[in-house]
Amino acid sequence: MRDFRSGWPPGDGVAVFNQLYLTVTETIGARIGDGAFGDRAAVSALDVRFAERYLTAVDTAAAGGRPPDCWRPLFEHRRHPGVRPLQFALAGINAHIGHDLALAVVDTCHALDCVPGDLEEEFERVGDLLAVLEERIRDDLMPGPDLLGIADPLTHLAGVWSLERARDAAWTAAGVLWRLRGLPLLAEEVRAWTDAGVGLVGRFLLTPCR
């Protein structure tokens, strides 16, 4: 993520999300080192597999491939002059939480030979930290009240998406995918539906606002 930061211009939409995600990752890493999580191995494994989903999407797009549908709106609109930084940030969070997090939970369960319920406590602690960071992100990237009227489309877009709801949906999806692990074709259908739905929300979040 640090390498990406040095290679992209600051106004690039993916760069906006990348800086945000780098901050989140560094914060979680520091909290792991401070002993804030009861199961350091579990939260570290989840954090790594979660990040791998984003990094793979970036590498796929850079190579001219097709990243997951949830990420495509951000890559396609990353240089759109009518999209504001907060929108880029929310679209990236939406893709990563809405699609990648459920898959990362399942990947971690396979790696640690556990079930999703074993990760729930650490999942919730990470989610609480993300909620605090989301508030900070909105404060940093939302234009001031003198620049943004109540009728501005960004006010509506920023208000309708919820990290808490996305996180709850990801946990539910992880449970469904885990139960379907013996039915790979059906599990892939569920994943594809989730991917497409999250991608549709991402396109809405990136509606040009200026």
Results as ranks from 00 to 15, higher is better:
120 E>Y: 14
116 P>D: 02
31 R>D: 12
36 A>V: 10
105 V>G: 01
96 H>N: 06
201 V>K: 08
146 D>N: 09
112 L>D: 00
125 R>M: 12
164 E>G: 11
169 A>V: 04
57 A>H: 01
58 V>Y: 09
90 L>F: 12
73 P>A: 09
206 L>E: 08
26 E>N: 08
145 P>M: 03
194 T>P: 00
64 G>C: 02
200 L>W: 11
14 V>P: 01
128 D>L: 13
148 L>G: 10
128 D>E: 15
88 F>A: 04
174 A>E: 00
79 R>A: 15
73 P>E: 06
168 D>W: 07
99 H>E: 05
102 A>E: 00
115 V>H: 08
192 A>F: 10
174 A>G: 00
8 W>E: 13
206 L>N: 08
116 P>N: 02
71 W>E: 00
68 P>T: 02
169 A>C: 01
15 A>V: 07
17 F>W: 14
193 W>C: 13
102 A>W: 00
16 V>H: 02
65 G>V: 04
50 F>I: 00
91 A>M: 09
161 W>D: 07
192 A>S: 15
108 T>E: 00
123 F>Y: 15
208 P>Y: 09
36 A>L: 08
64 G>H: 03
16 V>A: 08
74 L>R: 02
98 G>L: 04
25 T>C: 12
24 V>D: 02
66 R>Q: 03
13 G>V: 14
116 P>I: 06
120 E>Q: 14
185 L>K: 09
12 D>S: 13
8 W>C: 12
158 A>N: 06
71 W>Q: 00
98 G>P: 04
186 L>H: 04
12 D>N: 15
133 L>T: 09
87 Q>E: 13
121 E>P: 12
51 A>M: 08
165 R>I: 14
95 A>S: 06
166 A>E: 07
203 R>K: 14
164 E>L: 12
104 A>E: 01
85 P>F: 14
109 C>I: 07
165 R>A: 15
45 A>G: 07
154 L>S: 01
182 G>H: 14
14 V>I: 12
117 G>A: 13
111 A>C: 09
193 W>M: 15
197 G>Q: 04
103 L>T: 03
91 A>K: 03
56 T>V: 10
63 A>H: 02
163 L>N: 02
153 P>W: 08
31 R>P: 03
44 S>Y: 05
7 G>Y: 01
126 V>D: 03
20 L>N: 00
190 V>A: 07
129 L>M: 13
191 R>L: 13
99 H>C: 05
157 L>A: 06
53 R>A: 13
48 V>A: 08
171 W>L: 06
179 R>A: 11
191 R>W: 12
171 W>V: 07
172 T>V: 15
203 R>F: 14
125 R>N: 06
183 L>C: 11
